[in-house]
Amino acid sequence: MYRVLIPLDESVDRGLTQAEYLIGLPVDAESVEVVLMHILENVKQDVPDAMRKPGRVNSVRRVRDLLEDSGFDVRVERAAQSPTEAIKSKAAELDADEIVMGGRKQSPAGKVLFGSVTQSVLLNSDLPVVVTGGS
Score class of each variant (00 low, 15 high):
Asn58Lys: 15
Arg62Pro: 06
Val34Leu: 03
Gly55Pro: 06
Asp46Arg: 00
Ala29Lys: 00
Val35Ser: 00
Leu40Gly: 03
Val34Ser: 07
Val12Tyr: 06
Val43Pro: 02
Ser31Arg: 10
Val74Phe: 12
Glu30Gln: 05
Asp28Trp: 01
Asp13Gly: 14
Gly24Ala: 05
Leu36Trp: 07
Val74Asp: 09
Asp49Thr: 08
His38Ser: 06
Asp65Pro: 04
Gly71Cys: 04
Leu66Gly: 00
Tyr21Phe: 15
Thr17Val: 04
Asp13Cys: 07
Leu22Arg: 13
Asp46Thr: 05
Ala29Phe: 04
Leu16Phe: 03
Gly15Ile: 02
Glu30His: 11
Asp69Ala: 10
Tyr21Ser: 12
Val32Tyr: 08
Gly71Ser: 12
Val60Phe: 06
Lys53Ala: 10
Asp65Trp: 03
Met37Val: 12
Phe72Ile: 02
Leu22Trp: 04
Ser59Met: 15
Ser70Tyr: 14
Glu10Asn: 13
Asp73Pro: 02
Asn58Arg: 06
Arg61Ala: 03
Glu41Phe: 00
Glu41Lys: 07
Met37Pro: 03
His38Gln: 07
Val76Thr: 14
Glu41His: 03
Glu68Val: 15
Leu16Gly: 03
Ala50Met: 10
Glu41Ala: 00
Tyr21Cys: 09
Leu22Glu: 07
Ser11Ile: 03
Val43Ser: 07
Asn42Ser: 15
Tyr21Thr: 06
Val34Phe: 07
Arg14Val: 11
Tyr21Pro: 11
Asp28Glu: 11
Gln18Cys: 03
Ala29Met: 05
Glu33His: 04
Gly15Gln: 12
Val34Asp: 05
Lys44Leu: 14
Glu41Thr: 01
Glu33Thr: 00
Gly55Met: 08
Arg52Val: 01
Arg64His: 12
Asp69Met: 00
Tyr21Arg: 14
Arg62Trp: 14
Lys44Pro: 02
His38Tyr: 15
Val60Cys: 11
Val27Ala: 14
Glu30Val: 02
Gly55Leu: 12
Ile23Leu: 11
Pro54Gly: 05
Glu33Ala: 04
Glu41Arg: 02
Pro26Phe: 03
Glu41Leu: 00
Asn42Trp: 08
Val47Glu: 01
Asp13Thr: 05
Leu66Phe: 02
Phe72Gln: 00
Asp49Met: 11
Pro48Ala: 05
Val34Lys: 06
Arg75Thr: 13
Gly15Cys: 06
Val34His: 05
Gln18Asn: 05
Val76Pro: 12
Ser59Glu: 12
Ile39Ser: 04
Asp65Asn: 09
Asp28Thr: 14
Asn42Cys: 08
Tyr21Gln: 10
Pro54Asp: 09
Asp49Arg: 09
Glu41Ile: 04
Leu40Asp: 09
Ser59Trp: 10
Val57Leu: 13
Pro48Lys: 08
Val57Trp: 02
Asp49Val: 08
Asp13Glu: 15
Glu20Arg: 14
Ser59Arg: 14
His38Ala: 11
Leu25Pro: 08
Leu40Ile: 08
Val57Lys: 11
Gly24Ile: 03
Gly71His: 11
Val63Pro: 01
Asp65Ile: 04
Phe72Met: 02
Gln45Leu: 03
Arg62Asp: 11
Arg56Phe: 09
Val35Leu: 06
Ser31Cys: 02
Asp69Val: 01
Pro48Leu: 12
Ser70Arg: 10
Leu25Lys: 15
Asp69Tyr: 01
Leu16Asp: 05
